[in-house]
């Protein structure tokens, strides 16, 4: 075959092992670029850590040896007072419930708003297609605002409590879910919508009966994932300023030695909650998206 294609003289045949061959050159160039990228990456990371290290109050290696000091101190005190732990865990349960409520309410409001917003953001579904560009920019901005910024500003107005956290997390959730929901809706089949339109259904009915049944499992799965993330966010917001378990943790930490059993009790219930919610939502989401419902 090669003889037919290239003629009988051996010189014309492609020889991939020859050093000057185009394939070899391309491979070598790719290797060179890959190697260069790797070197640049390593250099950037190394110098970045160096800069971060210089700006840090403590030294990295020195800190490494002290890494377990604090956990050991906390744990040994908690171990000494281990009889208190169940009682303390029970005492902090209301704050934990508050943290979960903050996450649940903001996920609920955020997901409902995002569901409506997503329909306005999606080409082919939006009732006002001209607004799509503007609404997408607004969604980007909502997503970009860190929760802490809104929460701290709202604390100035409302005083500390769960409401600033709820509003802050809701705003961020609308931004994230709006984008994800609209990506799901973009892949929806438009035939049911056309069918409904042909019988004179209004926009609301077309969406309710044509789109919602298609996207509901994926939307629900994304909302669950957000709930999981929002529980963590709500714990962190509590630590920085609003109510919930994070605030309890901050107070106990500020007290320092003597309240470490309380710190450990809070750690334990927070850890268990996060793992539990993680597991549950993982299972439900797998059912929803893989369809093995029953």
């Amino acid at each position: 075959m090669v003889d037919i294609a290239f003629g009988p003289e051996p010189g014309k045949r492609p020889d991939p092992s020859a050093p000057g061959h185009a394939v070899m050159q391309a491979i070598r160039r790719r290797r060179l670029y890959g190697g260069l990228l790797l070197v640049i990456f390593v250099a950037v990371m190394a110098s970045g850590f160096q800069v971060a290290q210089d700006r840090n109050a403590g030294d990295f290696l020195e800190g490494l040896s002290r890494l377990d000091d604090f956990p050991r101190e906390v744990l040994s005190e908690a171990w000494a007072n281990r009889a208190n732990l169940p009682r303390l865990m029970w005492e902090h349960l209301p704050s934990l419930v508050e943290t979960i409520n903050i996450a649940a309410v903001s996920t609920l409001f955020g997901a409902l708003t995002a569901a409506l917003l997503a329909l306005f953001l999606t080409r082919g579904l939006a009732p006002f297609p001209r607004l799509i560009g503007l609404l997408r920019r607004i969604t980007d901005a909502l997503r970009a605002v860190p929760e802490i910024v809104i929460a701290l500003v709202l604390i100035f107005i409302f005083g500390s409590g769960p409401i600033p956290a709820v509003i802050a997390i809701t705003i961020h959730t609308i931004g994230v879910l709006g984008k994800l929901f609209s990506e799901v809706a973009e892949n929806a089949d438009l035939k049911p919508v056309d069918g409904l339109a042909s019988v004179g259904a209004t926009w609301g009915k077309r969406m309710w009966f044509g789109i919602l049944p298609q996207v509901a499992p994926n939307w629900f799965s994304y909302a669950l994932l957000r709930f999981e993330i929002n529980v963590r966010a709500s714990a962190i917001l509590g630590f920085v300023g609003s109510g919930g378990i994070g605030y309890d943790l901050k107070i106990a930490m500020q007290w320092g030695a003597g309240k470490y059993d309380q710190v450990v009790a809070i750690f334990i219930i927070l850890f268990l909650t996060i793992v539990l919610i993680d597991r549950l939502s993982d299972r439900v989401r797998r059912k929803l998206t893989h369809g093995d419902a029953q």
Binding site: F49, V51, A52, Q53, R55, N56, A57, G58, D59, F60, G63, L64, R66, L67, D69, F70
Partner: peptide
């Protein structure tokens, strides 16, 4: 980590 390494970007 802040207990071990002190405040800062690292």
């Amino acid at each position: 980590l802040s207990r071990a390494f002190g405040p800062g970007p690292m």
